[in-house]
Nucleic acid binder design. Sequence first.
DNA 1: CCATTCATGGTCAATCTGACCATAATTATC
DNA 2: GATAATTATGGTCAGATTGACCATGAATGG
Lengths: 238, 238
Amino acid sequence: MHSDLRSDQLHVTVDLLIMTIRDDRLHLLLSRRVSPPYEGQWALPGSFVGMNEAAEEAAERLLKEMLPVSEAFLEQLYTFTRADRDPRGRVISVAYLVIIPFRRLAAALGEHSPFHLFEVQLDACGLNLSDGAEQRLGPADLAFDHGSIVETGIRRLRGKIDYTEIGFHFLEDPDAFALSELQTIYEAVLGNALDTSNFRRSILNRYEKTGRLEQTSQAEKHGRGRPAVLYRLKSRSC
Amino acid sequence: MHSDLRSDQLHVTVDLLIMTIRDDRLHLLLSRRVSPPYEGQWALPGSFVGMNEAAEEAAERLLKEMLPVSEAFLEQLYTFTRADRDPRGRVISVAYLVIIPFRRLAAALGEHSPFHLFEVQLDACGLNLSDGAEQRLGPADLAFDHGSIVETGIRRLRGKIDYTEIGFHFLEDPDAFALSELQTIYEAVLGNALDTSNFRRSILNRYEKTGRLEQTSQAEKHGRGRPAVLYRLKSRSC
DNA sequence: CCATTCATGGTCAATCTGACCATAATTATC
DNA sequence: GATAATTATGGTCAGATTGACCATGAATGG
């Protein structure tokens, strides 16, 4: 539909950085491009913004139509505007950070999905996307400037995780979760291990003292080891 | 030039939130609209993004042409995309936070400038823009959705000031400043007074220990009271 | 000379942080 | 069924940080 972009006008797209945590590690959803440009390469799911929708609405529409998933956490990340970022013409992209708990994402994707999850690592050596064994991608292997978008998103996520509640959106069940699940999320996002005792203390101090975090009083039975107390994060009143 | 926007396409603008500190208080630069829509109302300086420039380049061009000022601190703030935000048609705006030290800004503006500085206050009562005596504006008095843009910008500035170096960009001379000047900036941005002794300690701990902050060893002579040691912030090596 | 004004430095208690250690409650294994 | 392994939870303790104050130094204005 947009294979021929008009050369005398600007186009606006949204690109989604869909993040989840699988096997205790941070993963990113990519789709393989089936047409030029960058045919065959991996890219962020994206869509043009319609004439009567806000960018965020386009992002939500994309989530519903492509995966499909409704009710995901969505936050505007950054707008990428380099004039030469799309060989087809002048295309500006508003990138969104999307967080979906793995089970809900996996259920939506089903078996034969055009999407693929890549483990994301970002350290001093740069960005690295890996898929079990087969593939190993660097930032330059992604279509367009999507490598930069991914780096920006990971950094934003890391920067916000310990002074906002953004990490809670990775929880499978926000109404009944163990602190160890939350710790797993923090470790996956930050890329390093945390001291269990100190993590508990900081979370409980931050949220329980203010009444935001309450026990659901049920203990988790499945799994090895001592059952964990389950918590629920109450939505903020103010 | 853009008085008639095509109804079948999207347009992209940049809007600038130009902030400075005058008389120890945070101020924002607004321009009065001289044509519809919102004729006569105050608005953020803005411009359409050209076909061959990135949004940030458009922002820099606008600074050079309108004020004119070169070499200002510029940071992308947020992209506003509500479909009905501009009555002329479909216009998306990429907002930038711009920081210019007051003397440089005042020199650029000169005497008979179409721009005007408003003191910005944002507290529980909401946003308030005031101009000495005459005018007193609320967020709804600004053109378009510029009231929301201003609120977003102030919040971002406040959120970043004590864990980034963004406050240093308000300094008149980054190569020779007293800690009290920096404190004035922090107080203006945060909207409340800080303990002088504790402020010194936190700044010196954060920056001097890492070698980022060094004394220029000259003492300030002008003014009452004990002369202050002047500092310089070295650009980060990494 | 003295009051005033800033700049600078120090104290002290409370809190927070990071590195540990200890114990409780469950499952896996022999 | 005893014991080891595993996971959750709680506590300690020194060091760092923070917030509220106080004290002193170095200039200027009467």
